[in-house]
Amino acid sequence: MPRAAAKPKSATYPRTRLRVYLAEDVMLGPGKADLLEGIAETGSIAAAGRRMGMSYKRAWMLVETLNGFFRQPLVAAATGGAKGGGAALTPLGVEVLARFRRMEAATVKACAAEIAALQKKRAK
Rank of each mutant, 00 (worst) to 15 (best):
V26C: 05
R101K: 08
F100C: 01
R51Q: 11
K121C: 15
P91Y: 01
K7T: 14
K9H: 13
M61Y: 11
R99H: 09
R51G: 09
K32I: 07
K7Y: 13
I45Q: 01
G80R: 05
A105V: 04
A4G: 15
K7I: 15
L97T: 02
D34E: 13
M27N: 12
A87T: 03
I45M: 05
P2L: 10
P2C: 10
A116I: 09
M61G: 14
W60C: 02
G81A: 03
A77V: 01
S10Y: 12
K120I: 11
Y13R: 13
A78T: 02
A48R: 01
W60T: 01
A5T: 11
M52T: 08
R3K: 15
R58C: 11
A48H: 02
G43I: 05
T12Y: 08
R17M: 14
R71G: 08
K57Q: 09
A40R: 08
E41M: 10
A23Y: 07
S55R: 05
G29W: 06
V108R: 12
R51M: 09
E114F: 14
K7E: 15
A33V: 06
G86F: 01
R19F: 06
T79L: 14
A47M: 03
L118H: 12
V20A: 11
A98T: 08
R17E: 14
